[in-house]
């Protein structure tokens, strides 16, 4: 197992959001977490990324516990997190943002290679190397955020709501990019509101409701599940 989350309880201050959440991800898998607003999807990701310290439970990455070690060390272990609000460095150029993404890497030639790869995946970024991140459109910023996450050469990429606030055709191109990355061998954990689309591209999925894992299984099976269809697809 690449990532094992066991009985995770977490929240903000006295407000507990996650109740006994357990997730497993194997190398090369494309896994999603779906669920209604406020179910705790983003909290799950933030806790794995080390931005929230869980009150109890375990997060094992490549067999090592990573809960409570701090956000910057989680990144060094090989987990990249692309948050919903992106957290880009708005007064830095596209290129500088990507360089910051490679902050934990020392090898200059590797950094250059990664950067070229990202310009190949997102040609838009290559055209706008010197533009300030804060002045770009929502779709471009989303691409930059994913690109910055990829710069650190992660073993696991976590993407929170890549389609949030994007036009449909841009959403499609972001999903295409994620599928290409999985085909290239990357493991991805995806949180998304667009349930139909998500379940059609991912391998496996978890359904999170009220901070608890309700259902888990193959994405194709989840898409046919009567409960999922009723709650998310309105059929």
């Amino acid at each position: 197992m690449l990532l094992e989350v066991n009985n995770l309880n977490a929240g903000y201050g006295f407000l507990q959001i996650l109740w006994d959440v357990s997730i497993e991800i194997d190398v090369g898998e494309f896994v999603c977490i779906v669920g209604p607003n406020g179910a705790g999807k983003s909290t799950t990701m933030k806790t794995i990324a080390g931005l929230i310290t869980p009150s109890s439970g375990q997060i094992l990455f490549k067999g090592e516990p990573i809960h409570g070690i701090g956000g910057h060390r989680v990144t060094r272990k090989g987990i990249a997190f692309v948050s919903e609000e992106m957290n880009l460095f708005t007064n830095m150029s596209v290129q500088e943002n990507l360089l910051m993404g490679a902050y934990i890497l020392d090898d200059k030639s590797l950094i250059q290679r990664r950067m070229n790869e990202i310009y190949d995946i997102f040609p838009r970024l290559g055209e706008r190397k010197s533009q300030l991140a804060g002045t770009m459109s929502g779709g471009e910023r989303k691409m930059l955020a994913i690109g910055r996450g990829l710069m650190s050469d992660p073993a696991l990429l976590m993407v929170d709501e890549p389609s949030f606030g994007l036009a449909p055709q841009l959403t499609a191109s972001v999903f295409d990019a994620l599928e290409t990355l999985v085909q290239g061998g990357l493991t991805i954990l995806l949180v998304e509101q667009n349930v139909t689309k998500t379940l059609s591209v991912t391998h496996r999925g978890y359904v999170l409701e009220n901070g608890r894992i309700g259902l888990a299984g193959k994405s194709a099976d989840l898409a046919c599940d009567p409960h999922v269809r009723k709650v998310f697809l309105g059929v």
Partner: peptide, 14 residues
Amino acid sequence: RAVSQDETGSLMVG
């Protein structure tokens, strides 16, 4: 500079 622009983002890049 990164920390001054986005603290969470700077944690996320390590």
